[in-house]
Amino acid sequence: MKHVRSQDVPSDVVREPGAKQATIKRLIDTTDGADRFVLSLFEVTPNGSTPPHYHDWEHEIFIVDGSMTLQLPDEKRDVKVSAGDVVFIPRNEPHGFITGADETCRFLVVAPTERPPIRNYFMSEDPYQYEETAGHR
């Protein structure tokens, strides 16, 4: 069994192409013995994003606090999500997240551990960006 306070789990910068002001905390991971699902806590601070991408597995999202915009490029629409919202992303569905100048969003992501050969398809060629800001680490 693992029991830990989320505040005690270190954050890592999201280093995917085009990501801005985004961090991840791997709350439950394969290194903990998880063999079916992993649980991660993402934080996207003001003017941040995880640009549109897709992958060969589904995942489930729960918005813990704050708000952001879910981008759905195939549907050519954006959806505003906020604390308490639940989102299901099917496999191979392009999606991304973006926060405005006054928005920060923290959200949980559940994803399978046994994924098809790891293939993320990032629809950005920009490098990731992250700058420390007061109160966010």
Rank of each mutant, 00 (worst) to 15 (best):
A19Y: 00
G18D: 01
R77Q: 12
P73V: 05
A22Q: 01
L27M: 14
V14N: 00
Q21K: 04
Q21C: 03
S49A: 13
P51W: 01
L72I: 08
D56T: 10
L39S: 12
L41G: 00
R15S: 14
I24W: 01
V13A: 13
T69M: 11
T31N: 11
L41T: 00
I63C: 05
D74S: 07
T50P: 00
T23M: 15
R5K: 13
K25Y: 03
D8R: 04
R5E: 13
F37D: 05
E58V: 08
E60H: 10
V38I: 14
V13R: 07
R15T: 13
S40P: 00
M68R: 01
D12E: 15
Q7N: 10
F62H: 11
D12F: 15
V38P: 00
D35G: 12
H59W: 09
P52Q: 03
D65M: 03
E43A: 06
E43T: 15
L72A: 06
R26S: 13
K76A: 12
P10R: 15
D65R: 06
V79S: 03
T45G: 08
D74Y: 05
L70C: 02
G66D: 02
P51E: 03
T30W: 07
S6F: 06
H59E: 11
F42H: 01
L39N: 12
P10M: 15
S67M: 10
S11W: 04
G66F: 02
P73W: 03
K76V: 11
N47K: 07
S67T: 14
M68I: 03
D12G: 11
R15A: 15
D29S: 14
I28C: 06
T45S: 14
T30N: 11
L39M: 13
R36K: 11
R77S: 08
H59A: 08
R5M: 10
I61S: 03
P10H: 15
F42I: 01
D65I: 04
G18F: 01
G33C: 03
S49L: 10
E16L: 12
D78P: 01
T69W: 06
V79H: 04
F62A: 10
A22D: 00
S6M: 11
P17T: 05
F37P: 00
I24L: 12
N47D: 15
S67I: 04
Q7G: 06
L41R: 03
T31F: 07
S6Y: 08
T50V: 11
Q21F: 02
A34M: 03
